[in-house]
Amino acid sequence: MTEKELEAALSAFPRRQLCGFATPVQRLYRLEEEQKTGPVFIKRDDLNGVGPGGNKVRPLEYLLGEALDRGCDVVIASGQENSNLCSIAASACCRLGVSCILVHNNPKPEHLAGNMLLNHLSGVEEHYIGSIPEQERDRYVEELADRLRREGRKPYVVENGATSVHGAIGYFHLPLELVREKTEVPIRDLFVPGGNGGLAAGVVFGTALLGGPFHVHVITVENTKKTLEAILDKLFQGLKEYTGLVPDVPVDSVMTIHEAYRGEGWGIPTKESEEMIRRLAQREGIFLERIYTAKTAWGMCDLLSRGLARREGACLVHSGGFASLFYQYT
C-alpha cells in the first residue's frame, strides 16, 4: 500500500484533528557518541500540542471523532489519579468544546501534582471514588453513563485506556510520518513501548500496511512476551475487520517483542531505566518518565550495544508522560 492509499483509507473514519503537524524527529548526537553507534533519532510524540502531550492524542483523534459524529455531549475517561490518558482527554475535550468527566480510583488528593494539577486547571469534572480495583471503577463508569442517559445526556466512554481497535488506527499516522521524514540515513529500526498494546498494535500494523519500511522493536513494560503477543494478535485481527485493510507483508515479519526490560512489571522502574532517565536528560535535554519511555529507551540502547539492532537508523518513539514525572518523584 502506498502512502496516499493509506491516507485515503484513513479518511473514511471519523476523526477530529488535534495535532495538525507531523511530530518532530531529532537526532541524538551525544547519546549516539556515547553508544558508539548512529545516527540515532527520537520521534517526539510528546510534542504534539495537546495538554501535556503524548501518544494518547493519536487514538483520541479517532475516538472523539466517533463520539462527536454520534452526537455525544459528554466524554467519560477513567484511570489512576495521575493518568496520562485522563489528562490528555481533558485537554482534548476542552479544545473540541465537549464536556469531560474523569473518574479516578483513588481518594481525593490533598496536594495536586503532575497530571492532577493539569486536570484541575482544565476545569473538568472529576470523581475520586477511593482505592478500589479497576473492575469496580469500570462498574462505576457504567453506572455513571447510565445515569447521564436517564438525564437526557449522550455520554461516550473512553474504554481500556483508549486502547481499542477504533483508537489504534490513529497510530497508523506515525509510520506514515516517518517514511516521509528526511533524515541523514533512513530509519531502519523503530523502538516503541508495549503496555496495553494500542500504540504497538497501531504502529506495527501501519508499518506492515506500508510494506515494512522499518522493523518495530516492541519493548514490553508490563506483560510477559506471551501475554503481549496475545493482546496484539487480538488487536491485529480487530484492525483487519474494522478497516478492511490487509497488510502487504505479515505483521510478524516487521515486529520483535522484547521482554527483558520490563523488570517486575508496570510502574516498577529498573535500575537501568532509572539511569536512562538521567542519561537522556543530561546528554540531550530530553525528559523520559518511569513507566513507559525509560524502559523503552534502555531497551534500544542495550539492543544497539549488543548488535541486536542495526547500528544506523535507530529511532526511539517518545510517547510522552512528562507531567507524570512531577508525581513519580514525590
Rank of each mutant, 00 (worst) to 15 (best):
R15L: 06
R16M: 06
Q26F: 15
E32F: 07
E34Q: 09
T37P: 14
G38F: 04
P39V: 04
V40Q: 06
D45I: 10
D46P: 05
V57Q: 09
P59K: 04
L60R: 06
E61G: 12
Y62R: 09
L63C: 15
E66T: 13
A67E: 13
G79R: 03
Q80N: 12
Q80F: 08
N82E: 09
N82C: 05
S87P: 04
A89D: 10
A90S: 15
S91T: 14
S91Y: 05
C94V: 12
S99A: 15
C100H: 12
E110S: 09
L112N: 01
G114M: 13
N115A: 06
M116W: 03
L117P: 00
E125D: 12
E126D: 01
S131P: 00
R137D: 01
E143G: 13
A145L: 14
R149A: 15
R150C: 02
R153Y: 07
V158R: 07
V165D: 12
A168N: 13
F172Q: 06
L178I: 15
R180A: 14
K182T: 11
V185F: 02
V185H: 03
D189Y: 08
G198C: 10
G198Q: 10
L199A: 14
L199N: 14
A200I: 15
A201Y: 03
T207F: 10
A208W: 03
P213A: 13
V216R: 06
H217R: 02
H217M: 11
V218K: 00
V221T: 08
E229H: 05
E229C: 05
A230Q: 04
Q237H: 00
G238F: 05
Y242P: 02
Y242E: 06
P250E: 12
M255I: 10
E259N: 00
G263L: 08
E264T: 01
E264Y: 07
S273M: 05
E275Q: 06
M276N: 03
A281P: 05
Y292I: 07
K295M: 02
T296G: 11
A297Q: 02
W298K: 14
L303D: 12
L304Q: 09
A309Q: 11
R311F: 00
C315K: 05
V317I: 15
H318L: 13
F322R: 00
S324H: 04
